[in-house]
Nucleic acid binder design. Structure first.
Lengths: 365, 365
DNA sequence: TTGAAAGCGCTAACAG
DNA sequence: CTGTTAGCGCTTTCAA
């Protein structure tokens, strides 16, 4: 690139506009920000001057003077996940509309521990508020953020005292499992996540509890052997499927806590020659585009809307409105496709003979 | 939220640090930014003062004083697409490392036309540089951005005079089609995009040309009837598949210009009862996670790396390094899975009888 | 090697 | 309704 700085057009400043409109800079500032106490004719004159000079306030100057950045930070575990991308889309749409910048920050995750939110991130005067996506912040992190004046809204996990949104994960677990029970399944496995993930247990734990609620309501005692870890990845889902099918008495249906894990389970089933849904039913959560392609039965949620809602509440709050610091659960719907069906006849007849010999799932077909 | 502003901790300013370290603010500024001409002992003293006060320069103040925002804008058509999310992940990783903010901006797209990049977006002093993802900016938009001093790097499409990266799309088209030819296919359809999309023709057009290159090299004249629009969506891919299979003489293999369209084609094939790859082979581009799940043969590219590379060149450029304003094509690899195979025996024997009766694809099976 | 002081461009009292 | 002016917190000459 050539350094033709000399040819760069110098941007107009507020003084240029003031001169052009023959008013003071203060008036320009007021007029352009639609503040009251500006004569309509003056405002119009200022506007025209601004347009003709292609003027826009220097963001840094405005930020320095007001102390507000007009930016919202989206804290995600990873940016390249379907869920996070959806949230960001929702946040960005609302922010753009309201004149806010959307800055994305990946905090990472994993056993090695993610970036701490405070110090090193230096969010401080960089953003006015943050939306935390599926992160379980420590109470002291939350306190610190709040103390430094940042608005906080969370998606997925909840942080007491701050607005949050997502779905009722316990209800999700119930909904999925009830669907399976309704089809006649009695032995239902679950692929979830107990590792120290970004979710810090809460989302998967809620879904698992909903699952057990439904089971118990149907008179079935949850079997610990029917739980597998899937770490919310395709690979994890595949491994989880393996583990479940190797159990003492394999399930006839599996509730995967998200579509990624369900997809992995589906793939492994195919590799093992296990017919879905003929031999095993599988249900996921999310309704990612992939679910439609795979014909995956799932529990749908509108993730972009979570992001939009979080952004809205934050922006309202920054605008001085009093917002509700509570939780808003968005609706979920069961989307029945082709991976769930009645249990195989064998299992159905077995249902009265709990000690029936276990099925062969060695992969032969 | 309660407005306990009173309890907010006042952040330390450079003056606080200067006082604590018993030096001037100028020295603090130099010391903390690792500028030369600071005595080691002084620098250390300043550092300690900064740490103990939990000081970080107010970004807006620094920006105003330096005229640089230390932020990079990622311009994407949509944020919730696999491709864009991957790019953003790559950009964010590099930016975070270099102390830059990553701000995401969706410009939209479609027939209604996307947001123009100049005026309304007011990127001006908001970011130091932008990475344009799959956008075909008008020359005057590019000129305007450049004139206002913004660095530009593009991913996918190329903007003359500015660094860009992606893959050699023509080679991608060749690679995919050669794979199909090698399997024995002679009648190969393509699902692409001719609508006025974000790509503004270039990416899909290149891939299509590579496809035709390969065809011609094999002595096959491209048949316009074997082109279908898929608009780079799953739905579009499904429709494109339909269209191709309804053609006078349907293809035995289909090259979908990305995995999303390939997925849609796969879904529609299943709905129509057309066996893949037994009756029709399908190959995509990207190697999204979904490809592995579906067993989709595809041409792999590392999209996050595109983002990382773009961010790196921009940051280098902002650091005053001379960077190459040319194009860097990342490698692509063919990933053979289970959606491509030899053409059906019928087609193979037909290959010498071009006027064979067309197959019935009405969906009955 | 360090300090003093003049901005960077805007906003927000405070006057008028 | 409009103008004057003092910052916002940092960087960067220019002197010392």
């Amino acid at each position: 690139m050539d350094d033709d700085d000399a040819t760069r057009t110098r941007r107009a400043t507020i003084e240029d506009v003031a001169a052009a409109a023959e008013v003071s800079v203060a008036t320009v500032s007021r007029a352009l920000r639609d503040l009251p106490n500006v004569a309509p004719s003056t405002r119009e004159r200022v506007r025209q001057a601004a347009v003709s000079l292609d003027y826009a306030a220097h963001p840094a100057a405005a930020r320095l003077a007001t102390g507000r950045s007009r930016a919202i930070g989206v804290l995600v575990p990873f940016v390249n996940s379907w869920y996070c991308a959806e949230v960001m889309a929702g946040v960005e749409a609302i922010c753009a509309e309201a004149g806010y910048d959307t800055i994305v920050i990946a905090v990472g995750t994993g056993a090695d521990g993610r970036r701490r939110i405070d110090g090193s991130l230096r969010l401080h005067r960089k953003v006015d508020a943050i939306v935390s996506v599926d992160l379980a912040l420590d109470p002291d992190e939350v306190a610190e953020l709040h103390a430094s004046g940042l608005g906080i809204a969370s998606i997925g996990t909840d942080h007491a005292g701050h607005p949050s949104t997502g779905v009722d994960d316990r209800a999700v677990g119930r909904l999925a499992t009830e669907h399976l029970l309704r089809l006649g399944h009695r032995r239902i496995g679950i692929i979830g996540d107990r590792t120290n993930s970004v979710y810090a247990f809460v989302v998967p734990e809620q879904r698992r509890q909903g699952h057990e609620d439904a089971l118990r309501a149907a008179g079935i005692e949850p079997d610990p052997e029917l739980f597998a870890d899937g770490s919310f990845t395709i690979e994890g889902g595949a491994d989880g499927f393996d583990q479940l099918m190797r159990s003492h008495e394999p399930p006839t249906a599996i509730f995967a806590l998200d579509d990624a894990m369900a997809s992995g389970a589906l793939r492994r089933a195919r590799e093992l020659g296990i017919a879905i849904p003929d031999e095993v039913s599988i249900i996921g959560v999310d309704d990612q585009p992939i679910a439609d392609v795979l014909g995956l039965t799932t529990v749908r949620q509108d993730v972009a809307e979570h992001g939009a809602r979080a952004a809205r509440v934050l922006i309202d709050q920054l605008a001085g409105l009093t917002v509700d610091a509570g939780r808003v659960d968005a609706p979920v719907t069961l989307v029945e496709r082709r991976t769930t069906a009645q249990p195989p006849a064998a299992a159905r007849s077995e249902s009265s003979t709990p000690l029936a010999p276990k099925r062969n799932v060695s992969g032969a077909r």
